[in-house]
Structure formats: structure tokens, C-alpha cells
Amino acid sequence: MSDVKKVVVFDYGFGNIRSAERALARVGADVEITRDYDKAMAADGLLVPGVGAFAACMKGLREARGDWIVGRRLSGGRPVLGICVGMQILFERGIEHGEETAGLDEWPGEVGPLKADVVPHMGWNTVDAAAGSELFAGLDADERYYFVHSYAVHDWTLEVTNPHIRAPRVSWATHGEPFVAAVENQALWATQFHPEKSGDAGAQLLTNWIGTL
């Protein structure tokens, strides 16, 4: 049996899908870009990209039945990785220009504007990785990752009291103020930055994710 993992990059009209495809292929995955339900459900891993506005991404995702696919995969413990706005839409809601849009509500919390002197946050930044992180395994604390965003999650409210369930690992970055840079929560992982544009460090992150599939 082949050890090569099948990864679907979910194509719902938003995201750097070709960059994600190349980055995943670079680290040895068998990659397909599609919105086909059966293929998205059968893949070892599902990557949900996202660029642009929260509301537009949610509209596109729902029209492609991506909300249902993500929910069904997670209910069966099937890995999903969200990137950039593909991470933000996993939260309860997003607020842009005073407009509130419901997200997938996999995690409680709100996506809101970054409060910083320079917005968007565009360029390279370090991440304060969570203790015991599998996503950042093998990476130095001074590694830099590529960010492009004007909105972020500023608070983490999900607590796990069941001693048999691992608490989410939440990593942070700072641009004007601290914000959530990555989350590892059972089968659902996500990054605010773009690993597919983060060079060797991003390749190691993707390698780490694929190694869990």
C-alpha cells in the first residue's frame, strides 16, 4: 500500500489554490484541486484556502457545499486544514465594515479588524508556537511566516474540561496587538498565515500536517 497521502484543495472560488497545490506536491502529497463531494470526503486531508472578505468566502463555501463537507469530515475525525480566511471562517462569526456574517462555528470567537498602525499586516512575522505543537515541530522560534490580512481573531475562549480530550493548541503572533496565528484542535488545524508562501518553514509545516494524516 502506498504511503503517499491524498490531499484535496477545496476549490470554491477563493484562495491561492495553485500555490497550495504546488506546495503540497513539493512535500510529497498526491494533490487534487476539486469541489467534488466524493473526492473531498475520501481524501486523507482536506485543505480549505481563503482570501478576500469573510462574507464572500462564506457565501462561496456554502454554494459549493463546503460547509457541509467540512462538518461531515470533522464529525468522522477526518483532517481539515484551513488557511488565512479559510481559518477565519471556522470561527463563530466575522465582522467586516460593521457587517456580521455567520461562520462555520467550529470554534467560538469573532474575527474582527486588526488594531495596528499599518494595516493590512503584509509580510513576514514570527509566531509564538503553542507548547507541544505538532504543526511547528522541528521549527525554530525565530522562523518567519508570510501573512496578508487585515482581520484576525483576538481572543481564544474554547476550554476543554474533559481530561480524556486534548486541549486545543493555540499559537499567537503580534502585529499591533496579539492575534491567533494557528490552531491545532483534534482533526481541525488552521493557520492565519500562508504556509504555501512561507518558503522552507512553510514546507516543514505542511510536512508536519501530512505526517498526521
Rank of each mutant, 00 (worst) to 15 (best):
F179N: 08
H164W: 14
P195K: 03
L188R: 07
T157N: 14
R169P: 02
T207K: 12
P168G: 01
V183N: 05
T157D: 09
A201N: 08
W156V: 12
W156Q: 04
P163E: 02
K197M: 05
D200G: 05
T212Y: 08
H175P: 10
S198Q: 00
F179M: 11
E177D: 12
D155I: 11
G211C: 06
T174L: 11
T157S: 15
V160Y: 10
R169S: 08
L206N: 03
Q204F: 02
T191Q: 04
A201P: 02
F179G: 00
E159Q: 14
V170F: 04
T161I: 13
P178H: 06
L206E: 01
G176C: 05
G176L: 07
L206C: 08
G199D: 13
P195D: 01
V160N: 11
T161E: 13
T161R: 14
T191N: 09
T161V: 15
T161D: 15
A203M: 10
T191E: 04
H194D: 09
A181G: 11
V170E: 09
V183I: 07
K197W: 01
L158R: 15
A187K: 04
W209H: 06
H194E: 04
P168I: 00
P195I: 01
F179H: 08
P178C: 12
F193H: 01
W156R: 00
S171F: 01
G211N: 06
T161Y: 12
D200T: 11
T157P: 10
Q192M: 10
I210D: 14
A201H: 09
Q186R: 13
